[in-house]
Design a protein around this nucleic acid. Sequence first.
DNA 1: TTTATTTTTGATCGATCAATCAGTTTTATG
DNA 2: CATAAAACTGATTGATCGATCAAAAATAAA
Lengths: 201, 201
Amino acid sequence: MKNKQYMIADARREQIIHAAIEVLTEIGYFSTSLSKIANKANTSTGLISYHFSGKEDLMNNTLLYLVELEKDFIIERVEQKSSILEKLMAFIEAGIEYRATKRGNTTALLEIVFNVRNPDNVPYFRQELRPEDELSVLLEELLRKGVESKAFKDDLDPRVVTMMIRGAVSLSMSLPLDESVLSFKHYTEQVTKNVLKMIHH
Amino acid sequence: MKNKQYMIADARREQIIHAAIEVLTEIGYFSTSLSKIANKANTSTGLISYHFSGKEDLMNNTLLYLVELEKDFIIERVEQKSSILEKLMAFIEAGIEYRATKRGNTTALLEIVFNVRNPDNVPYFRQELRPEDELSVLLEELLRKGVESKAFKDDLDPRVVTMMIRGAVSLSMSLPLDESVLSFKHYTEQVTKNVLKMIHH
DNA sequence: TTTATTTTTGATCGATCAATCAGTTTTATG
DNA sequence: CATAAAACTGATTGATCGATCAAAAATAAA
């Protein structure tokens, strides 16, 4: 019975994380305070300190939560495909769709990545190994396998193409909100078309 | 003689802006305070408030300064070329070189872009018209002219290719510091090669 | 019910911040 | 030199922050 004892904690933690995401999206990291998060979650600052060791710990947990959401969304779509080319296309499509549709999550993630620093004062976005970058590793592996299996051109540098795809996916969060100007579907079509030119014979 | 009267102001403003760039690069926007900037500039907080109307005004002026630096660097290299294709290549090369070599400036610029908000609470990085985006306008024009003059493929969407190039250029600031792993020159070669595949017959 | 543990509150503390301002020094002009 | 404008200082103020903690409430176990 040890497991079911006092299991409110997990739910409360997630509730606080959701409030943090909302506040971050609305007013940005700089203006986000524990009291504002507590307000949004209808609770007190003391409770946040009870469930997290501090503001930084809350932000780190929020980042992990957001990274997991995006990763799950993309990986699930990639695993539905069997061929490497199809997996690559699924990665691009899902990546763009996530960034273009879940803008709140992406905004909050960027707020954290660009502002939270590790004990050595190095921000996430300049660390060598970023938690968010498991996706980059997956993408690079896909490209590498494609080259090895002769499915893709062999003069292609998987590291560089990975960066170019990640850049194109990242920027899809800056697509105009008005879908009639430049829809994310059109953007996806064009990006995949261009990526095919990079990798195909 | 009116012009040479009390011209210390401009020099002092630039000195403060330089100090702001250094502090932003070292400790990030969140920890940057007027007193730390004043310290770095060997002056007082009062002087900053004397030359700028407030912290926000200082950050906006610092952003304009950094944008101008990058713009001048790239545009100068583009204007040395005559053909559209050469201009496009020069844009990519200069863009990557600037981001990869002037990392401090780029870091400070990102710190501001991701944290300063206009009176409506909208951060720079989500505004429709960004001061930094004159470069995107220039790039898109280049691509559009290339299509019109039949130099580039006509199934190419200048808006999308602009975003892909901007993404690849932006990410070059994340290139490993160790040049032997993945040098910015190799990155430039690969990116230009891939862009040529996107635009050429 | 009694007891022990977890969960929650809200007031409080020390630190830090941006901005202000009265007063001082420097500079240019006549 | 005298005067006025510009440049500059640093202490102060009021606000906000993250964190703490004593006390209370809720929950589970015995």
